[in-house]
Simulated assay, not measured.
Amino acid sequence: MKINHLTSAEENLMKLFWKLESFYLKDIMEHHPEPKPHQNTVSTYLKILVEKGYLSTEKEGRIFKYTVIVPFDEYKKFLLRELSHNLFNDSGKEILEFLFNEKLISQDDLKGYFDLKIELKPAKIKEPKLEYANEILNPKKDKKKDKKKKKKKD
């Protein structure tokens, strides 16, 4: 199914249509918030949305019953793919970085979505060889004898 772009006015009407799923023109006029558009305007948008493949029609007597064809989740997927492709070079990493930087998402938000089982094990650090420090702190007896001999000679 090919999904087409919607104008902001079409998208606003589709938000109402997705809630209703199946409806008549009178249902739209009843459910649309104030200020209500003129009935002819809504009829024009309905015709456009049918042509774009978002709605289907079924004639019942003298009136049409409209049904949503493109589910809201499919439209969201379409928009996110377009956004990812056009603005983020198809990189999920870039999208996440942007969301974090703009504080639109936090790590706590992601904890419920990703069940990552990462165990952090402490790295084994080799103790540095402190030869000179050990010589100073723990001098060998042989060296003491050598030092005593040198002092006696002087």
Rank of each mutant, 00 (worst) to 15 (best):
D27M: 08
I28E: 14
E30P: 00
H31W: 08
H32T: 09
H32M: 01
P33N: 03
P33D: 06
P35R: 04
K36M: 06
K36S: 05
P37S: 01
H38D: 13
H38L: 13
Q39I: 07
Q39A: 02
N40C: 00
N40Q: 03
N40M: 00
V42G: 09
V42S: 06
S43M: 07
S43W: 04
T44D: 12
Y45T: 00
L49T: 10
V50M: 00
K52M: 10
Y54R: 08
L55E: 01
S56D: 13
S56A: 08
S56I: 03
T57R: 12
T57H: 02
E58M: 06
K59G: 03
K59P: 08
E60D: 08
E60A: 11
Y66G: 02
T67V: 07
I69P: 12
I69Y: 07
I69F: 10
V70G: 10
P71R: 05
F72T: 04
F72Q: 14
D73R: 10
D73H: 15
E74A: 11
Y75N: 05
Y75E: 05
Y75C: 01
K77V: 05
L79M: 06
L80P: 13
E82C: 01
E82D: 08
S84Q: 06
L87V: 03
L87G: 00
L87W: 14
F88D: 07
N89Y: 13
D90I: 08
D90N: 15
K93A: 11
I95G: 04
L96T: 04
E97K: 13
L99K: 05
N101H: 10
E102I: 02
E102S: 11
L104N: 12
L104Y: 15
L104D: 09
I105E: 03
S106Y: 03
S106H: 07
S106W: 05
D108M: 06
D108T: 14
D109A: 03
L110K: 01
L110G: 00
K111T: 11
G112A: 03
G112L: 02
Y113R: 12
Y113C: 11
L116R: 05
L116M: 02
L116F: 14
K117W: 09
I118R: 05
E119M: 04
L120W: 01
K121H: 08
K121Q: 12
K121G: 00
K121C: 02
P122V: 05
P122L: 07
A123D: 09
K124I: 13
K124L: 11
K124P: 13
I125E: 13
I125P: 09
I125S: 09
K126P: 02
E127G: 00
E127K: 10
P128G: 00
K129V: 01
L130T: 10
E131K: 10
E131F: 06
Y132I: 09
Y132C: 01
A133H: 13
N134P: 11
E135R: 13
I136P: 01
N138A: 06
P139Q: 02
P139W: 07
P139H: 07
P139M: 07
P139G: 04
D142G: 15
D142P: 06
K143V: 15
K143S: 15
K143A: 14
K144Q: 05
K144W: 11
K145L: 14
